Amino acid sequence: MRRASGAIFGLAYGDSLGAPTEFLDMKQIRRRFGEHGPTQLNGDPALVTDDTQMTIAVGLALLDALENPPFTPDLITPMWRRRFVDWLNSPDNDRAPGNTCLRACRGLAAGKPWVDATVAGSKGCGANMRVAPVGLAPGLSDETRAGASQLQAALTHGHPTGLAASELTAFAVRWLADGMDPSDLPGALRERCHDQRAVYHERWLGGLWRRSGAGSPEAFVARGWDECLGRLDALDAALARADRSSDPCEITGAGWTADEALATGLLCFLLFPDEPVEAIRRGAASSGDSDSIACLAGAFAGARLGLAAWPDEWASRIEYADDLARIGAAWD
Rank of each mutant, 00 (worst) to 15 (best):
V134T: 13
P70F: 09
P38G: 11
S316E: 13
A4S: 15
M129A: 13
L11A: 15
F71E: 02
S16L: 04
F272Q: 12
D44C: 10
A104S: 09
A299K: 05
W256F: 14
P73S: 09
A172N: 06
N42D: 13
G34P: 08
P20E: 07
W314V: 01
P38E: 01
E191S: 14
L88T: 06
T257Q: 02
L229P: 01
G139T: 11
P113A: 04
I318K: 00
Q152H: 00
P133S: 04
G111P: 03
M26E: 11
P133N: 05
L63N: 05
L136V: 00
S90H: 06
F300Q: 03
L296E: 04
G187T: 11
A110S: 13
F33T: 02
D247I: 04
L102Y: 07
W225E: 10
A154N: 04
L296W: 06
R130F: 10
G14W: 07
F9P: 02
A237L: 13
A153H: 09
E22A: 12
H36L: 14
Y13A: 13
M1K: 12
T169V: 08
P160C: 02
A237N: 10
T144W: 00
D195N: 14
L305G: 00
M79W: 09
A7R: 05
A219S: 14
T55C: 07
F84Q: 09
L41P: 10
A258G: 06
G111F: 04
N89T: 10
W331F: 14
A219D: 15
R174K: 12
G224K: 08
S316G: 14
P91F: 07
L232N: 04
Q152A: 03
G187Q: 10
G306Y: 10
L136H: 06
G18C: 11
Q150R: 15
A137W: 09
I327Q: 12
L108T: 03
A12R: 06
A308P: 05
R2N: 15
T21C: 13
N128S: 13
L267T: 04
G215V: 01
Q150F: 02
R282L: 14
R30P: 00
R282M: 10
L185V: 05
F9C: 08
R282I: 01
S212R: 10
Q152M: 13
F269C: 10
R210Q: 15
G111C: 05
A258M: 13
W175C: 01
